[in-house]
Design a binder for these strands. Structure first.
Lengths: 214, 214
DNA sequence: GTCCCGCATTTTGTATTCAAAATGCATAGT
DNA sequence: ACTATGCATTTTGAATACAAAATGCGGGAC
């Protein structure tokens, strides 16, 4: 039995991210520390520590005397975040071991091909997408880069539940993943990186189409 | 008179970064919260909040029950950080307004040419380097990217005071900056980006040569 | 009726207190 | 002599208490 021994602030951070992903917090709304702390069954101290950590990831904003609020969303920021993640994942791929990439390529192809047909709800699609990208980057030895990526992606999570789910984009996404995997199979790293960039940019466009105007 | 009205945690964070840059904290050493808080004249609460923020930037590490320590340095991590910053600055340049770049190119050239001759101490060189890169990125509209860059660069600051200062590298740095500026003058954005990457990689090599082995 | 001022209330920011875990040392046992 | 165990001390983690700032409301002036 591995008993849970982590600081409360981390558990709270994770719990808040979970709730955020579930759409329980509206962007732009204030955090009431006392209420939230009571709800979580902890004191304000570790809660505030978690809030500060999340503010560092761009999930929250804070202003003097006014506390924390869930960062407002905007099409502009979404584009910015996608550009950053695309560049970072491209770098991660670039600095991955080519042998390892060749090894995982078949599995990546399988994953991408296997699931597009079966209808899945939004959350499932996202989870599978995360898994796929996780495997793609599993050969990157740059730990700081992987750290940074997870943090930036955390900042993107608040956009996931804003888009209206559709069928077509899922199929498109799958096709793009296949394309990347195929390039890797052929040892065409530059091609794979270009396809990866295209995947992010394309995904962004598709999501922007379903994002409400500011 | 603009009176200082910022949360203590932010002032503390800045003060700690200042001290870190001055080399007052050795990498790998533990933080004693009570002692440091007393030294700064604040309570442990805002100090811990600052420490958590710095941990999010990779300057500190924390482990359950053992508190915070200044993150150990390694040649591996340094290479990782440089790779990240190079990619991010390249992206920033890529997404800058070409007109603006052309406008600032002369000033960049001036700055790069003006100062290599005069001998300057390490801290001055770094500050000037920061200023130059700041100007270079001044046309980037991606706010999240600029934010991220400053945070990642903060994580790099602990390496600055580890290298033994030399004369030759400064001159080399200056020449590379000139090269970048010239490319921008000629409207050669891809060339400028390549030169920028080379500048980071080259600077890394030069610093690595003066970094002690792990 | 509207605007402004001041007070009461709420909420955040910081300090202090308490609890729990880790560290170090001394001692007993092998 | 070396290891292990128990206790005292130190240090962190979390909760509570206190102070200061912001918000909201009601009354009065115009």
């Amino acid at each position: 039995m591995a008993i849970e021994r982590r600081p409360l602030r981390e558990q709270i951070r994770d719990e808040l991210m979970d709730r955020l992903t579930r759409g329980e917090f509206a962007a732009g709304t204030d955090v009431n520390e006392a209420v939230l702390a009571a709800e979580l069954g902890v004191s304000r101290t570790p809660l505030r520590e978690a809030l500060i950590a999340l503010a560092g990831e761009g999930v929250l904003e804070s202003s003097q005397g006014r506390g924390f609020r869930f960062a407002p969303v905007s099409r502009k920021e979404f584009r910015e975040l996608v550009a950053i993640v695309a560049a970072l994942e491209a770098l991660a791929l670039e600095s991955s071991d080519p042998d390892h990439l060749r090894t995982i390529a078949p599995r990546l192809l399988d994953l991408a091909q296997g699931f597009p047909d079966q209808v899945a709800e939004h959350a499932t699609v996202d989870r599978r997408d995360d898994e796929w990208h996780g495997l793609l980057l599993s050969g990157c030895a740059n730990e700081r880069l992987l750290d940074l990526l997870t943090r930036v992606k955390a900042g993107m999570r608040r956009y996931e539940n804003l888009v209206v789910a559709e069928d077509e984009p899922v199929a498109r996404e799958s096709e793009e993943h296949c394309e990347i995997a195929r390039r890797l199979l052929e040892d065409d790293l530059p091609g794979a990186i270009a396809a990866l960039r295209a995947n992010w940019i394309g995904g962004m466009e598709r999501m922007l189409a379903h994002l409400p105007e500011d």
